[in-house]
């Protein structure tokens, strides 16, 4: 009791009159996080930036020569890798949305409490095995004599995808479609979870109110549920699109050299060609492009209004 009585007056002291130590407390608390950022983000970034502007070779050593044309050369050499990266991940993101939204909707509104947890666990269950193993498993699933290819062949669907250039030679493996499937599968949980979170927060009374105000179920979805879940859609698409654009495992394991994405190029430059400046420059270009696209997208989606 006495303790609170003594502590109380400090609460009315205006901010600028407080003892300096107290005012600094929040900053001290930020320190570990800031240190982490400096060591693991800022330093590598500066290091990479400097690498990207160096010239030389591994044997003779690299010199910082402010060689900006590395950027231009890298971009013109690998422009199709960029196009494929963004193309594949955009399609995969749309597929994730198309698959993930109904699933998230079902979990949030239709499933009973028990089933809700079961399905959520199933959604994250793939994370219990490694990314690599899961992608390798898809190699088996999509293999030429596998049931998937045979079924699709029997339905003549592969001729269709051949015609639009998603597959070649009546097979799935080593085609753009396989890479897209892999990306979709691997990043689906990153779409479902934010969607579920935003849908689950919606008061079911809003659906009732819409119904009471003459909205049919589909209109209710279009005018009430979907607009309210937009922040989840934005978060889900970003969480899917960004990592998918930089991914190289799916293209490596499920594609052929002609499906290589920008991640593969960076990996090759760093680990095989040992051309560090080009690899670093590619990384920066990728980052800049993603940042640009995300900014435009966020502007369009008007998230500030929504959240």
């Amino acid at each position: 009791m006495t303790a609170t009585a003594e502590a109380a007056p400090t609460q009315v002291i205006p901010l600028q009159d407080r003892p300096p130590r107290r005012r600094l407390t929040p900053y001290w608390l930020l320190l570990p996080g800031l240190a982490w950022l400096v060591v693991f983000f800022v330093v590598p970034m500066v290091y990479q930036a400097s690498t990207s502007l160096q010239t030389g070779s591994l044997e003779q050593g690299f010199q910082l020569t402010w060689h900006f044309s590395t950027y231009w050369d890298a971009l013109s050499e690998y422009k199709w890798h960029f196009v494929r990266s963004f193309g594949f991940s955009a399609i995969a993101t749309l597929l994730c949305l198309a698959i993930g939204y109904p699933l998230a909707y079902t979990i949030a509104f239709k499933a009973s409490k028990r089933w809700r947890n079961v399905i959520l666990i199933l959604v994250i269950a793939p994370f219990f095995t490694s990314f690599l193993i899961r992608t390798l498993a898809w190699k088996t699933i999509l293999s030429d004599s596998g049931p998937v290819v045979e079924t699709l062949n029997a339905l003549h669907l592969l001729s269709l995808t051949d015609a639009i250039g998603l597959t070649t030679g009546q097979r799935l493996l080593a085609t753009p479609l396989a890479v897209i499937c892999g990306l979709t599968y691997n990043f689906l949980p990153f779409m479902i979870l934010p969607l579920y979170t935003s849908l689950e927060r919606i008061d079911p009374r809003l659906h009732e109110a819409a119904g009471d105000l003459y909205a049919r179920p589909f209109t209710t979805f279009r005018k009430v549920t979907f607009p309210i879940s937009l922040p989840g859609v934005v978060a889900g698409t970003l969480l899917t699109f960004i990592p998918a654009s930089g991914d190289y495992i799916n293209a490596q394991l499920l594609g052929s050299p002609s499906e290589q994405m920008i991640g593969n190029a960076i990996q090759k430059q760093f680990l095989n060609v040992l051309d560090y400046p080009t690899a670093a420059a590619l990384s920066f270009i990728l980052m800049a492009l993603i940042l640009g696209m995300v900014t435009v997208y966020m502007r369009k989606a008007g998230t500030e209004e929504l959240v």
């Binding site: 009374r205 809003l206 009732e208 109110a209 819409a210 929504l306």
Partner: peptide, 9 residues
């Protein structure tokens, strides 16, 4: 409605 249920968006 008892809880109003206004559309927040």
């Amino acid at each position: 409605f008892q809880s109003y249920a206004l559309f927040p968006h």
